[in-house]
Nucleic acid binder design. Structure first.
Length: 133
DNA sequence: TTGTTGACCTCTT
DNA sequence: CAAGAGGCCAACA
């Protein structure tokens, strides 16, 4: 599974705001993900939709890719796809790192899928609620 | 430089 | 109702 695995992603470029403008979307995603409370999960579409509708759901995944070297640490393990499947599991440090992290936070995983995903689902709009951008 | 891939989602047939 | 195609933006070759 997922034989194709990119190792070099050059995240520093996104972290270091040299021109700061192209990475705006990434920082937005990271900021949102960082706001995700422990024991809670969200989906790429929710983040993308909260930022700019269904514009760049794919880019959200790329943002996570860069999040590995981003500080503060971004809980990318709390971000999953629409069905609650650990899509980016293969991209983590370990193939089970994501699941381990989620389980550690109290979230149960079954067959690389989050149990009661909707129950643990965290709406990014909630973070913005009462705290406008 | 252009072309293709990519941790996805939504709309149309 | 189910399946297929499109789309978005960025990075890598």
């Amino acid at each position: 599974m997922a034989s194709s695995k990119r190792q070099s992603v050059t995240p520093l470029r996104a972290v270091l705001p040299s021109g700061k403008k192209d990475t705006d979307f990434f920082q937005q995603v990271w900021a949102l993900v960082r706001l995700i409370p422990r024991g809670r999960v969200t989906s790429y579409g929710a983040i993308a939709a909260c930022l700019g509708a269904r514009s760049g759901a794919r880019m959200v995944g790329w943002a996570m890719n860069s999040s590995h070297g981003v500080h503060p640490k971004v809980p990318a393990h709390r971000v999953v796809n629409r069905v609650g499947l650990l899509s980016g599991k293969d991209h983590f440090a370990s193939p089970t790192a994501m699941q381990e992290q989620l389980e550690k936070e109290g979230i149960k995983i079954k067959d690389n899928q989050i149990v009661d995903f909707e129950k643990h689902f965290w709406d990014p709009g909630q973070a913005l609620t009462g705290h406008q951008l």
